[in-house]
Design a protein around this nucleic acid. Structure first.
Lengths: 140, 140
DNA sequence: CAGTATCCATGAGGATACTG
DNA sequence: CAGTATCCTCATGGATACTG
């Protein structure tokens, strides 16, 4: 069933936001979008070096998802050796502002998040107030 | 390794945004945050009915992650029967605006996303321009 | 009621090797 | 160079049943 249908009315109307989070939910998606935004139409090999720490296969997976969701356009040149580049669609471009808003939040609250994580870990070892036993440790 | 450390400088500075996406990356996280935001401190049983389509275990997982990431506060009452409620932290509240921006994007571009997905599926069956063979079908 | 314990299916991330 | 093919690991989502 390649790509489950989005249930746009599953939740409160506000939660249409979930669609936005889904199209960027995966590990590298937002990074790829930001990188293409920063440099314009870009070839995979260039993305590979500019991003760093991502394998060709995983980058390709990400590009395929982004293309599937209509955030990037794939443009193949009929040449040899093979040449392709990826650019942002209108939808992809429009997503940049909200993404930057998320980035601003992260800049402001990154420490709070890290602190909360440490406090959570700390609480976890010691006895827990309320209830809850010892094995409720989310990985992220 | 409960919760891998966030590498805040892994990417370009903009990509601090990834932290924001990570704390909401999972299936129900954004829905839970919006629901708590809409109704104030809320008990799990109430979230269960208000959200709908989520199991107690999965809701609990989500709440645990959100707590871990410092987006919600857990407040246990020492009573019988057990009673707990969850509220948004300052960081959680601050995230609402960016989330609404994402929601606005989704409202505007949901159709574009769906169209792109259909076109992708269509292209997939027919022969593909450029290169790429037949088994590159991302699920989302 | 809040939360845990299992068990299962699936899909993403990752490493490697290989085509056209 | 772009992309696919394998193969592995592990986190999530989900269903069910069970405690305090």
């Amino acid at each position: 069933m390649g790509g489950q249908a989005y249930q746009l009315d599953d939740y409160t109307s506000d939660c249409l936001a979930r669609l936005a989070f889904e199209v960027l939910a995966n590990r590298w998606d937002s990074v790829v979008v930001f990188t293409i935004a920063a440099y314009g139409p870009t070839r995979p090999a260039v993305l590979l070096t500019r991003i760093g720490g991502i394998s060709p296969k995983v980058l390709n997976d990400a590009l395929r998802r982004l293309e599937y969701n209509g955030l990037v356009d794939r443009r193949p040149y009929q040449e040899a050796p093979p040449r392709v580049d990826y650019s942002l669609t209108e939808a992809g471009n429009a997503l940049l502002e909200p993404m930057r808003a998320m980035g601003a939040w992260a800049t402001r609250y990154a420490d709070a998040v890290l602190d909360a994580q440490e406090r959570f870990e700390a609480r976890e070892t010691s006895t827990r107030s309320g209830s809850r036993s010892r094995s409720a440790r989310p990985r992220r």
